[in-house]
């Protein structure tokens, strides 16, 4: 059985489209039962989005000055 530490590493890999089908399956199964890892998954996706937006935000901020 994979624990939460392993699963969050796989979630991280999945965000970069680098996980295998079996790994994605393991993640999917785990997050059904584990709300903490489920939160990690949603929030890591959000952080990726925020990181991308940050450069836009930075561009706008600099523009204003």
């Amino acid at each position: 059985m994979r624990n939460c530490r392993d699963i969050t590493l796989l979630i991280s890999k999945e965000l970069d489209n680098e996980s295998t089908l079996a790994e994605r399956f393991a993640v999917g199964l785990h997050v059904l039962m584990c709300s903490r890892c489920k939160n990690f998954q949603t929030q890591s996706t959000f952080i990726s989005k925020a990181a991308h937006r940050f450069t836009e935000h930075l561009g706008e901020e600099i523009e204003k000055k």
Partner: peptide, 12 residues
Amino acid sequence: SNGEWHSGPSAW
């Protein structure tokens, strides 16, 4: 050490 969360992510 078992790989379980110390205090895990809560909902945002």
